[in-house]
Amino acid sequence: RPPSGESLVEVRRRVLNAHEGLADSLDADETVLVVSHGAPIRLSLGEVKGLDIVETMLSQPLDNGGLCELEVELSDDGDEPLVHVVAENETHFLTT
């Protein structure tokens, strides 16, 4: 933990709470753009892919400006929203 900062576990808890709250608040036809730093993006992707926190931070390379897309499927029965990765670290649109 950096001085006056959060541990990675605390960051993960905060990010996943926000991720879950956002997913729960979406309407079926709604699109949301979230812009973030690399750690929260990795933590969200890692949760969706079922990675532990170490794998999450070490095995997911992200380029600056890379696009990651998640899709949330809402169920009619009120179960948890199903989230899956559509695109990860897409950079083809960036120019050098």
Rank of each mutant, 00 (worst) to 15 (best):
H37V: 04
I41D: 07
S4C: 15
T31W: 12
D27C: 14
L33N: 10
E47N: 13
T96Q: 06
I53A: 05
V54H: 11
A18N: 13
V15A: 01
M57L: 08
R12V: 04
V85H: 01
R42Q: 09
V72K: 04
D76L: 13
P40N: 00
S59L: 11
H37P: 02
H19M: 12
G21E: 00
L74Y: 02
H92F: 11
P40E: 03
L33S: 10
D77F: 07
I41G: 02
E90D: 11
E6K: 07
S44G: 09
L62V: 02
D27G: 15
N64A: 03
H37L: 00
L82T: 13
L82Q: 14
E6G: 00
E73H: 12
T95R: 01
G50N: 03
E10D: 09
L16M: 07
S75A: 14
L51N: 07
G65Y: 00
P3Q: 10
L26R: 05
V54L: 10
R14T: 06
K49P: 08
D27I: 12
N64V: 03
C68I: 06
H37K: 03
P2T: 14
D24A: 15
V35W: 02
C68A: 09
L58H: 15
R13T: 14
M57T: 05
D63H: 14
V86C: 09
V48C: 05
V86I: 06
D27H: 12
E80H: 12
E55V: 03
R42S: 04
V15Q: 04
H19W: 10
G38Y: 02
V85I: 07
S4R: 15
R13V: 11
D63T: 10
L16W: 09
A18Y: 11
L26G: 04
S59H: 11
C68E: 04
V32S: 02
P61W: 06
P81V: 09
G38T: 01
L82V: 14
A18C: 13
N64F: 08
D79S: 15
E73K: 12
R12A: 08
A23N: 03
V15L: 01
E20D: 15
T91R: 02
E80S: 11
A23H: 07
V34Q: 08
